[in-house]
Amino acid sequence: MAADSSEYIKHHLTNLVYGQHPDGSWGFAHSAAEAAEMGFWKFHVDTLGWSVGLGVLFLALFGFAAKRATTDVPKGFQNFVEILVDFVDTQTKENFHGRNPMIAPMGLTIFCWVFLMNLMDLIPVDWIPALFNLFGVHYMKIVPSTDPNITLGMSFTVFFLIIFYSIKVKGIGGFAGELTLHPFSSNNLFVKLLLIPVNLFLETVNLLAKPISLGLRLFGNMYAGEMIFILIALMFNAGVIMALFGGVLQLGWAIFHILVITLQAFLFMVLTIVYLSTAHEDH
């Protein structure tokens, strides 16, 4: 039982991996050990695939709405899309104090995309993996945001943008100054020079903490949520009473999770906007 359970959990946490085998050929990994041997050059086909698929779904839906957008009385789906657009626009105006037409669309993309990725968490953990199993695919993680590669992938893009806009707005000198002359400064030139390494260390940590916390926060929340769903799913194999109890728990956790997935999507968006706003501020 214990071995079965740990096997079940491990199975649910293993990605479908496509990558370069140690012998140089490319192919799917047939076990976790084989995947581990591949090193860096491998892709989580399942999470990346679902992630891209959901992103395309988002763009298709919103692109459809955008194509048919009218200035007349909006109806149905356009209403829904406009609520989201207005919501993101308001958040951007409140949190972003520079001028950059890219921030709001990026906020919308993040919010909707992350929400859709998180939403996959509400699909009972065995359904889609079982379906894929019928076609001979043994590993299938369907919640992209429970994969640190996915969340960190997004936050590193944000990190890149932070650095890009910091340099673009303040210049290399300004950005370097921001990294070396704060938070400690002095009027004495010698002390100032002496403080540069200290400031650089602190500011670098501060700068790096942004993308890492951004990515790991989303990953941590979703991973924990997914883990609990898997644990609840274990109860379905442990007798009728446990299964019924598990059903109630599953429902309760899913309802609570609706809040979590929305909140995490919202947080990712707002923090991205705030970080980029800071990057645009010239001291």
């Binding site: 990605n15 990558g19 995947a35 581990a36 591949m38 090193g39 860096f40 050059w41 491998k42 892709f43 989580h44 999470t47 990346l48 992630s51 891209v52 992103g55 988002f58 763009l59 919103f62 692109g63 955008a66 657009v85 037409p101 890219m102 709001a104 669309p105 990026m106 919308l108 993309t109 995309w113 992209p144 994969d147 640190p148 590669n149 996915i150 960190l152 992938g153 997004m154 590193f156 893009t157 890149f160």
Partner: peptide, 25 residues
């Protein structure tokens, strides 16, 4: 396990943002 997925996701993110910026927003 950090691997090339992170690159794929970064690129996908950038592309989606670009599309949203150009055609949706």
């Amino acid at each position: 396990d950090i691997n090339a997925t992170i690159l794929g996701q970064s690129i996908a993110f950038a592309v989606f943002v670009f599309f949203c910026l150009k055609f949706v927003w």
